[in-house]
Structure formats: structure tokens, C-alpha cells
């Protein structure tokens, strides 16, 4: 209950500057992913692209969506969700990869 009151009225206020830095980082990562796609990494290309996209999502979630400043339960919930999707994809590939 104490916890609740702490956050009752406003959320953690983040400076405009932080947002702009994050935005610049996102633009740079976009440039990076386009550049890397231009190089010939064959099968790794998709892995690298997904990793960069994942990194961008982490930035968006942590700063734009304030996940970094929320109580830990929010992060736990995000982990549960991502983990579930990973399991679903993984188990489907036990079929697809061995057919």
C-alpha cells in the first residue's frame, strides 16, 4: 500500500534530452541495420537484423515506454510474455526443422 502511494500522482519524469538521445540512438541503429543488410553475411544476416531490432525494442520499452522506471512487476510480466512466445516458436520448429 505504501508502494501504491509513492506512485499515486505522477510518473517518474524523464528529461527531454534523454528522449532525444534515445531517438538518435534508434536512428543510428536503423542506419546500422540497413548497412549490415548490404554486406553479405548469408544466413547470419537475419540473425543480426533480429538482434538489432531487439536492441531497438529494448530502448523503446525502457525509455519511451518508461519500463525502466516502473515497479519490477512490469518487467517480470514482459519477460513472461517474451519467454512464452519464444517457447511457442521453439516448439513449432521441433516440427518444421525435422520434417
Amino acid at each position: 500500500m505504501v508502494h501504491q502511494n509513492e506512485h499515486q500522482h505522477t510518473q517518474h519524469i524523464v528529461g527531454y534530452g534523454t528522449y532525444i538521445m534515445v531517438w538518435l540512438a534508434l536512428l543510428m541503429l536503423t542506419a546500422l541495420t540497413v548497412t549490415v543488410a548490404g554486406m553479405n553475411f548469408k544466413n547470419f544476416a537475419i540473425v543480426i537484423a533480429i538482434l538489432i531490432a531487439g536492441l531497438k525494442s529494448i530502448l523503446v520499452m525502457n525509455y519511451f515506454m518508461h519500463l525502466k522506471f516502473e515497479p519490477p512487476i512490469f518487467r517480470t510480466m514482459v519477460y513472461i510474455t517474451v519467454f512464452t512466445l519464444a517457447i511457442i516458436i521453439g516448439l513449432t520448429f521441433t516440427d518444421i526443422s525435422f520434417r
Binding site: T30, T33, V34, A37, G38, N40, A45, I46, A49, I50, I52, A53
Partner: peptide
């Protein structure tokens, strides 16, 4: 974006 536009290269 990468899945549709970048897997070609």
C-alpha cells in the same frame, strides 16, 4: 522492417 525489406540483400 528488416523482415520484409532487408532479407533480400
Amino acid at each position: 522492417f528488416p523482415l520484409f525489406y532487408l532479407v533480400s540483400m
